[in-house]
Write a protein that binds this DNA or RNA. Structure first.
Lengths: 162, 162
DNA sequence: CTTGGAAAGTCAATAATACTGACGTAAATT
DNA sequence: AATTTACGTCAGTATTATTGACTTTCCAAG
């Protein structure tokens, strides 16, 4: 028996110690905090708007004509919770809600001009941070980043990653 | 002039398009959701306990005898917000608060036996998910994951990553 | 064509997390 | 002795989220 077994085993376990995992957990915590900080900062100027509004704007922008039910599935909140946010966005003319053509029970959501503008300003800040992080890390690191995040998330949610 | 310039440029820009960045943003959202879901689930059985309690338990466990001010810096919340959580944890005998020896104004926080037990059960669930994600992705991907997350987080917070 | 169920919206009550502002106490520092 | 730091607390408010109940509209299956 050669040493390879031992070496390979050691290498495999190296990044699976509790300490390495706890470090990864903290990395997720700190990174997510930074990740949300820029849009949060901007939204402080909009009274009664917060992270929930940003998320709705983001996913409506990414999925024009999305239905309420699909948006609920993506966000993972109750309809009562989403409804408060959506109602504000529609009242403020940032989101348009149109009766579905195939199924008139459905509502198709899309951003208005003003909605696109606000989404843009929030997205700009967030993309700037991501771009800088990607650039400094390089393509291979980005691929690893994407792979691990996909493994962390609920597989059922991968549908929504286009 | 050779094609190399063009090719290299193309490769550099490949992962920096708005769409790639937006995908990364969504990956962060979905992954963080999965990342917190297991502890959240467990804490549903503990009325009045939530994510904030988990975070406090985690960082006190990782930094025994941590002071309140340091914990405030790590968590990035106000002392009023942390105090509510800490008061509950101390009252429920999950956290011990000892007057500092060098500086008697400070309080050194540590987990009690019961605190360690609860932290363990929450950590187990979260580490299980991370371990599985790491294992499926492989060491190189994990390194990339770590690099990008470190680039996303606020540099000032890297002090707290041991 | 009626009935069952799906999609959306709403009202009400409550929970968890977080904030600002204002005080108070104790202890270290200047 | 005066100031600053660390901690704790009270009060009020904001944001996001929950459960539960009920309604309207409308598609689709019997």
């Amino acid at each position: 028996m050669v040493d390879l077994t031992k070496a390979a085993k050691g290498e495999n376990l190296l990044f699976l110690t509790d300490d390495q995992l706890l470090q990864g957990i903290e990395l997720m915590f700190f990174a997510y905090k930074g990740f949300t900080s820029d849009p949060d900062q901007i939204l402080q100027n909009y009274a009664s708007y917060g992270r929930a509004h940003h998320r709705a704007l983001h996913f409506i922008n990414r999925n024009p004509n999305i239905t309420v039910n699909t948006l609920l599935d993506i966000l993972g909140v109750t309809k009562q919770s989403l409804n408060r946010v959506l109602r504000q966005l529609v009242e403020d003319n940032l989101v348009e809600s149109q009766v579905g053509k195939r199924d008139r029970r459905e509502r198709n959501l899309k951003l208005t001009e003003a909605g696109q503008e606000l989404e843009r300003s929030l997205s700009d800040a967030q993309r700037k941070r991501m771009r800088s992080a990607y650039k400094a890390a390089g393509p291979d690191a980005v691929q690893g980043f994407r792979t691990v995040l996909q493994n962390i998330m609920d597989p059922k949610m991968k549908n929504h990653l286009e």
